[in-house]
Structure formats: C-alpha cells, structure tokens
Computed example of a mutant assay.
Amino acid sequence: MTRITEQSSRYDNLETKSVEELTRYINQEDARVAGAIKEALPQINALITQIVSKLSAHGRMFYIGAGSGGRLSVLDVIELPTTYGVEPGRVNAILAGGADRLVEALEEKEDDVNEAWAKLTEANISPADIVVGISASGSTPFVLEGLKKCRENQITTGCIVSNPDSVIAAQADYPVEVITGPEFITGSTRMKCGTAQKMIFDMISTTTMIRLGRVQGNSMVNVKLINDKIVDRAVLMLMNKSGISNYAEAKTLLLQHGSVKAALEAFAPKYI
C-alpha cells in the first residue's frame, strides 16, 4: 500500500511565505480535489446505486469513521431529516469516541478495534443495511475492523479512502478511492482529503435523496418547517409550484399539511 497522504508536501519553508503566497498555494492544491473526484465517479456511482437500493428496500445506511472524515460524516447525516424530511435513523454516522463528543478531537479512539462493531450491533445492523467506512489513510483500525465484521456477517460494505490499494478498500464491496495527493501541510489530511470527503458526502446524500423521491424538480419539497426562514422558503416554493398567488393562502395550506409535497398533493395532485 502506497501512503500518498503521508508523502512530503510539494511546498517547503512555509514559515517564510507571505499570506498571499500561502493562500495561493493552498488554493492551487484545493483545485486538484475536483479532478480527483472526477476520476473516482464510476466508483462513487456504484456505491450510491447500492445505497439507494438498500434504502429503497427499507434498509439503512451507516457511516463509520474517525477523525476529520468521521466528524464530517456526522455533520452530513444530521442535515438530512430537516432538508429532506427523511426519518431519523435511515442514514446514520458512527464516530470513534461517540458522535456526542463531536467537538473533541479524540484521535486516539481511531485505534479502538471493537467500538465500531459494538455500536453497529447496538443498532441491530443486518444484511438489509449498508455500512460505509471513512478513512483518509485507508488503514484506520476502527474502520477496518468494523468493515471486517460486517463482511463476516454478510452486510454490504463501502468505503471512501485517499490511498490506493488500501486494506480498508479490500474489505469494501464498493470502494471509493479518491487520490488527492500529498497535503499542503505534510500528513494533514483535514485539508484536501477532508475537502474531498465533504464533497463526496454531498454527492451521496443529495443524489440518494433525489433518487428516493425527496426532491421535486429542483426543490426541497419535503423540507421540515422548523423556523421562519424555512417556512417562508416553503411558502414561496408552494406558490411557485401550485400557482397560488396569495401568500397567506399558501402559508395556511402549507402549515395545514406540514410540507410542500403534502400541500401540493392536497391542492393540485397533477404537480406531484
């Protein structure tokens, strides 16, 4: 296994550089991320297709991860119930050390070889579900042992890693290898690797929710009405899609039915 993520930075003597030089160099490195993801799109598409299949059949998805990648997966997951109205528990994230300690950098927990499977077992994991491991290095023990146990129990696995031919990818039925190259600060995978992970999480969750029917046209018609800003956005969305011209009328209909989609189904079924 080649640890590209640990190779020396293309830049040196950083402490001698100006602010303008540093930001230009970081931007140059960030520009490589989208290209690396483009190369991995076939793998990403295969993983998403399997996730959609599992969720369509009433299964669940679990991310397991540690460090920056694990924390980013938690942030993605917690947005989904509000943005798409999907019920909590359909898409999940298990973070080394516990998601309730998200703001703590419990990096030592990535060496725990038992916690991931213990947490999955507590969640009653089954072959109806899919588990996706997150590891920039492709060797994180927390993730590796979790995926091994999943495969032993006939549970479909995927992964997102940033080194080729990793031990974690070998345990994944649907591996995604996004090779972003050496980091600007040698070994600091919170940078390009983290950016790539965030972009892929967005791809996975957004594409999956669209395929599951949680989006109409280009609109979040299942968004939860949790604050005034979202209610206003949803009212305007309903007016646009239904042809209702009166704001107060649209708002009343929206609040009566609880979502744009439900309001459209009640008011104008042809729009669904």
Rank of each mutant, 00 (worst) to 15 (best):
N163I: 01
T140D: 09
V132Q: 11
P88G: 01
E79N: 01
Y247F: 13
G65F: 03
I155A: 03
S166T: 15
L80S: 04
D232R: 10
S139N: 14
A46H: 08
G181Q: 09
E177L: 12
E108G: 09
L75Q: 08
L102W: 06
N163Q: 02
A266P: 10
E110L: 03
M239A: 10
V19H: 04
F201C: 08
I210L: 08
H257S: 13
N246Y: 05
I230D: 05
L95H: 12
A99V: 15
D12R: 06
N246D: 15
P182E: 09
C150R: 01
I160W: 08
N45Y: 12
I244H: 07
L144V: 00
N218M: 09
K192Q: 02
Y247S: 06
V33C: 13
I125Q: 00
A105C: 09
V77L: 13
E108Y: 07
V52W: 05
K251Q: 13
H257C: 08
F184E: 06
A116V: 02
R3I: 03
Q154L: 02
R101M: 09
Y174H: 11
P81E: 08
L147I: 00
A118P: 02
I210F: 09
A57V: 00
P88Q: 02
P81G: 11
L80W: 10
P88A: 07
T207A: 15
C193W: 05
G98N: 09
K149R: 08
D165Q: 07
A105W: 06
E15F: 03
W117M: 01
Y63C: 06
E107V: 09
G243R: 13
S242V: 13
L253Y: 05
D12K: 09
R211S: 11
T156Q: 08
I155T: 05
V86P: 00
A248H: 05
D12H: 05
L264D: 04
E110V: 01
N240R: 12
E183I: 04
G146N: 01
K261T: 01
V178E: 05
A196C: 10
T189L: 14
T2R: 06
G59M: 01
P269D: 00
N13E: 03
A99P: 03
G194L: 07
A170K: 14
